[in-house]
Amino acid sequence: MIEIKDVNKVFYQGNKAINALSDINLTIEQGSIFGVIGSSGAGKSTLIRCVNLLERPTTGEVLLDGVDLTKLSDQELTNTRRKIGMIFQHFNLLSSRTVFNNVALPLELAGVSKSEIKTKVEDLLALVGLAEKRDVYPANLSGGQKQRVAIARALASDPKVLLCDEATSALDPATTISILELLRKINKELNLTILLITHEMAVVKGICQEVAIIGGGKLVENGLVGDIFAHPKTELARDFIRSTLDLSIPADYQERLHSTRVENSYPLIRLEFTGASVDAPVISHVAREFNIDISILSSNMDYVGGVKFGLMLAEFIGPDACAEKAIEYLKQQKIELEVLGYVI
């Protein structure tokens, strides 16, 4: 279990103090997968580096199974860090070592015997599916394979916790999914606590049970993934979720968009579905009921923790009065609507 208590981190740029983290409190249960999501510069990287003290918090405590890491001696900290694995956005594999020797490095550092290293490393390479790549240098691996090696390396010293610093941000979507599957697998098989930071909604949705949203160095909101996405309590959390879903109006539509209704124009509407919205097939229902045609321009809907949410851009094509009624009806279903303008 990781407990982060009242952690503050201040950086100095010349004489100017920058609060990278302000009063962060988090508890991460043993065996859970916890995501911290935020945009760049929000303090995510600083936060995850405070957990293994790559960055020392200015004030506050970081507890691993009840032991405050900030109070450990250098020697004790070194030993404790062996129980906290870490993987990185840019993998950070040693280019001078083969796959095998990269995974062996933490064991060498801990003074494990050669024969033990051999069995352990071969097991780990089998676990991450890279047994046949053992004598290859990292330069000859794909991004996904490099991250697998990094995961094997992080697991070499049997850690209780795995820290993932934007571990999938340099990978393509398909590879991201396979790495997340691997993380889920090791989480289950080894009862490993995983703390990951990311700016990708898909990652959090994909594997996290709990999520914390961080913005401007402050913890904005945290809780179960479904709850946070479906019922964001704070404006910042909402903005963030919206920004990850953001739909922009295509340029040629933008040109044809008028702020007032003119002859032969139809309203362009943004619909926002949240956890509060009535869970029913509303679009087809509205089309039938109010005798309008709905042309969906773009849509980004998601399903997390039993809740549908997302954004949609659509044209309501039909007589004025019908479209008005339809909008009224949708509002009653707790769907948030905004008429962006009228398209000719």
Binding site: T78, N79, M86, L94, S96, E108, L109, S157
Partner: peptide
């Protein structure tokens, strides 16, 4: 990042020099 990774693994400064920086 390599030095950081080694630190996270629990490498001591001398080990970082010998096993990471110089190689």
């Amino acid at each position: 990042g390599l030095v950081e990774a080694a630190q996270a693994m629990g490498a001591k400064p001398l080990q970082i020099i010998k096993k990471v920086l110089l190689p």
